[in-house]
Design a binder for these strands. Structure first.
Lengths: 341, 341
DNA sequence: TAAGTTTGCACAAACGCTTGCGTAACGGCT
DNA sequence: AGCCGTTACGCAAGCGTTTGTGCAAACTTA
């Protein structure tokens, strides 16, 4: 009872394989198969639980309706969220998604991309962790569409959909300044990564516009809880401690919160904090954390849209899109009285 | 430069397709291909960037080295974590994972399973959301291995790897009782789901062993924040409010915390709380939440192991395994003085 | 009724790979 | 010289589809 194929149905109904194929793939009228025949074949297919072999179909049609999604860590809620959106959105377009976890390792990334190509995915959506676009650009020439998300490269023609990290950094900092803060420290993640660079650029620009550039303090080296913790310790114990800290990711935030609590300081009375990345739990911290929320939903949806268009041959494929983030204001930032400055 | 195949390599090297195939799939010595030939072919393959077509390979070998993973919600950190483990573990065994989000919908689930079978996955790991195992059992007869995780069915021979939810419910409740609590309310999720039933059973058994069964109070109807919020409101405003609340999931917990805060009560001084599910953020709530942590790592690893064994033909395939959870003690439960009882 | 048109389907090649079997060439042995 | 065992590879079938083309039979039309 296991493997029904077009052949077995053909034998049992007496029609040729091609007729069966056309009926079962909805091409009946295009090939003028009579309604009677169609019904016979469809009934038999149903009866014997025919399941088409998509490998064979893919081999001949050169289309698999699979898109590959590569992300650095499925375990990170931010990426999991994006994956969730992409999977759902792809499904509405008739695509199945293969999710690969590159573990933030460029070696893995290259290997995984090749593996997906081997599997003949129709297109690839990727959060690149390589510093160099060369590999992906080469792949892209192989006429397989690629869309970058969350991170992009400086001088590349690869299409991307990302948060406008510059604006996020800028708005967060302006928010702090607007409430009277002047000594604002920024704890960053991986310094060379594009999102990080842009966030820092926004931070600096906001300071500059308010003649505070001399107060700029950027430290930190990766997107880890540990990093947030250590850098915060240093800030709190150093000279002229900041009145506010801007953490560039949710992980860094957690480390910062831990360090602040250990020091006995209260948020926001003694020190204010603002962060990048959104998360349900941030509403349940005490106090709820003011943050820059990235438009994951829009990113996922747009990426799929661009990719599927490109797969369909419509060259909307070279879109390079930045989506503005949203500032979610909660209670982790205090308004400073003038004398406190 | 696009599509190199065995044929093109064959033409350029002058060797037959079969020879190329055997060399490139490491079967060279088994078929006594001379070292000189091997080197020639391998060099040419490298030079022209040959990428094997796994569709074709799958068609002939009837093995794809893909496993399908179906989970109810990629967006839920608990499931995302499991997915992460499965993907990583599967990769070490040479398998790629196709992740599908069933959105907690049994109709989707069936459709998704069929789709994966169409794609000729070698096996399936699934968090079932159907109440009835009939469909999966039928599929399983189709000689495609299936392993259930996180949830299982009562009277089925399908292999599974799950948390020992009974023990989790029992230990959490015993922990509360041990600290002097006697009025312990339990807010549950979907009542008929196996994990929920088992957790409640453990809760009741702990009460019973301490002659507190008359105090048992189980309410709630699904694993949502909303549910946790509403049920907690009811509990706090009802007669003889509990001294402790046991929430059966992280989502329910969040709702409960919100309700408690709104009521002005303090945790744990005024009311204690303990929850199911682990999450980094729980350490950063104030206070950090005492919780029953599910062994996601072990579940994922074991599930992959059982599945791959079964795929390999070794009938370790009918394992049914419960793994004990771990109690993580934080500060959300107070010790009650005797007179407070 | 002959010629032309339409209807309804079958043939067979192709997709890229694996694999059982066959066999030519060569060397060693008697 | 004849026989045999290796060595080193090639042949061709088959996996389950799709799809361009071909072709009888039926139906029109004049």
């Amino acid at each position: 009872m296991a493997n029904e194929t077009l052949v077995t149905i053909s034998q049992r109904t007496g029609f040729s394989i091609s007729t069966i194929s056309r009926v079962l793939s909805g091409q009946a009228e295009r090939y003028r198969i009579s309604p009677a025949t169609v019904q016979l074949i469809e009934e038999e297919a149903k009866r014997c639980n025919y399941i088409p072999n998509l490998l064979a179909k893919g081999l001949t049609t050169r289309r698999t309706n699979i898109i590959g999604l590569l992300i650095p860590s499925v375990d990170n809620p931010y990426f999991a969220n994006i994956a969730s959106v992409v999977i759902r959105q792809a499904k509405t377009q008739g695509f199945t998604t293969m999710v690969v976890d590159t573990m933030e390792n460029e070696k893995n990334e290259q290997q995984d991309v090749l593996s997906l190509i081997s599997r003949k995915v129709d297109g690839i959506i990727i959060v690149p962790c390589d510093r160099d676009p060369a590999f992906l650009e080469r792949i892209s020439k192989h006429n397989i569409p690629i869309v970058l998300i969350d991170r992009y490269f400086d001088a590349t023609s690869l299409p991307y959909v990302c948060t406008d990290n510059y604006q996020g950094g800028y708005e967060a900092t302006m928010h702090l300044i607007g409430l009277g803060h002047e000594r604002i420290a920024c704890i960053q993640g991986v310094p060379y990564s594009m999102p990080n660079k842009e966030r820092v650029r926004g931070y600096r620009e906001a300071l500059r516009q308010n003649n505070l550039e001399k107060n700029a303090r950027v430290s930190g080296e990766d997107f880890s809880v540990q990093n947030g913790y250590l850098e915060t310790k240093l800030l709190l114990n150093g000279p002229s401690a900041p009145t506010a800290i801007f953490t560039l990711s949710n992980t860094i935030l957690l480390g910062a919160v831990k360090a602040i609590r250990e020091s006995g300081l209260r948020i926001p009375q003694d020190i204010s904090i603002i962060s990048f990345d959104n998360n349900t739990y941030l509403d349940y911290l005490d106090p709820a954390v003011t943050r820059v929320s990235q438009p994951t939903e829009e990113i996922g949806i747009l990426a799929v849209k661009i990719l599927t268009e490109s797969i369909a041959g419509n060259e909307a494929g070279d879109a390079q899109i930045l989506i503005p983030p949203k500032l979610i204001v909660c209670n982790s930032v205090s308004r400073l009285a003038v004398h406190e400055k």
